[in-house]
Design a protein around this nucleic acid. Sequence first.
DNA 1: TTGACGCAATTGGTATGATGATATCCTATA
DNA 2: TATAGGATATCATCATACCAATTGCGTCAA
Lengths: 244, 244
Amino acid sequence: MQSFPPDIRDGFREVCRTTLSASVFEKLLSLILSGHWKEGDRILPERELSHELGVGRASLREALKALELIGMIESRVGDGTFVCQRSTFLSRPLLWAITGSGMTRVDELVESRLVLECEIAAFAAARATSDDMKAIEMDVQRLGSGLADPDVLLDADLKFHLGIANAAHNQILLNAVQMIRSLMQQWMLVTLHVPGVGPRVFAQHDAILQAIRAKDPAAAREAMRGHLEEMGGLLIRIKSASAS
Amino acid sequence: MQSFPPDIRDGFREVCRTTLSASVFEKLLSLILSGHWKEGDRILPERELSHELGVGRASLREALKALELIGMIESRVGDGTFVCQRSTFLSRPLLWAITGSGMTRVDELVESRLVLECEIAAFAAARATSDDMKAIEMDVQRLGSGLADPDVLLDADLKFHLGIANAAHNQILLNAVQMIRSLMQQWMLVTLHVPGVGPRVFAQHDAILQAIRAKDPAAAREAMRGHLEEMGGLLIRIKSASAS
DNA sequence: TTGACGCAATTGGTATGATGATATCCTATA
DNA sequence: TATAGGATATCATCATACCAATTGCGTCAA
């Protein structure tokens, strides 16, 4: 792993122009982002890690806590510290920004989704590989066979849209979709509980899939637009009905 | 079995189901996001604040450090702790994700911008208020009168695009534009140094402005698309030329 | 009067040790 | 064999002490 000279402490300290905690934070961050520590991995106990890095436990804890608060790692008492899914930490700051400024407007979320995912569907139609197609097809099938269970529906729907975003081969847009999706998550489930919505979603997903399979960007864009407009409209109606 | 003596801390602790640092973090976060603490404000010294909240200094520091690492506050030894500008912290986690995973693909940034800002321009044309228009017009003028200085160009360009995103009246999309912009910032300056680009940008900005003023969404979308495609293409050519 | 020097107070940065709470694993006993 | 209990590992929190950097004030000399 890290083969440092006997005295890691001095070498480590020389590098740090800012504070120790910040250096530790950056080091841990890069270890996670580079994939050296993967999702679900358990990282060393605080005491060992602090000894290994040659810093006090307080400094290490400040870095760890920062990582935890932005959602990159999770600490469980008596168990250890674990790396979280990559998608969660991206959405959190945005979530703060939205909720913190009191702007939890559903219509803005729906609109943002429309802007992003229509074009993403078009890109996917132009760029999807056969592996991408297989993944998307599987999600459509899974949704079709789980119409009874809203939880399965929610998950299959999520995977479907992420699969398409993945097929668009643009990391930035993929991240954006993930963020918006996690912001909408709470309301999605409400929509999927409405009777008759499941089969409708299935049909629309299938239409989108066909357009992508046919490598027809314009058709994919319009199919996605129809899907999102209908579901978004339903969501907004439910929201305004429950508010009044 | 045994009853604890009345203690102020118990009330605070009972509320927190998570950890103490997380509670403190959320409390401070809301104080900043709600505007109770404004940009540039100096917040209480650690010792006083920890005493005020009834938590140990270590716990408070973990929360403060997290806020500092995501760019919301800044600590200076012997001076104090201050609230940063709001715009910086939004993009940081995404910045880490992009740079950390080695995906610094300019073409993806350009493409993402295209997807977002074309529709945003259309929304702006439909929704801009007279105040929005004034702000946008001012930025166009400022760019026109500062063609000689790339730094002014960069700033006026940024303000122009943010002004339009603001006029679209969608917080989510505004945040998205801010993020992508800060990711591109380093390369934007290179583009604006190319001779002849300044006047070209000015003309295109003006065209977009006219379309928005005319409340013509389709024209605004196409004007923005033309602008971004030309500048994006230029940027990609510069990047690939310097890479080879 | 004014400038420079220096000391003390303030404030964040770091380290350490102690104590508590909780999850996991192992062992002993019924 | 199954369950209860303890041993252990691990994070959570606090108190304290000391270090380092900055600020500000007061003193002293020109």
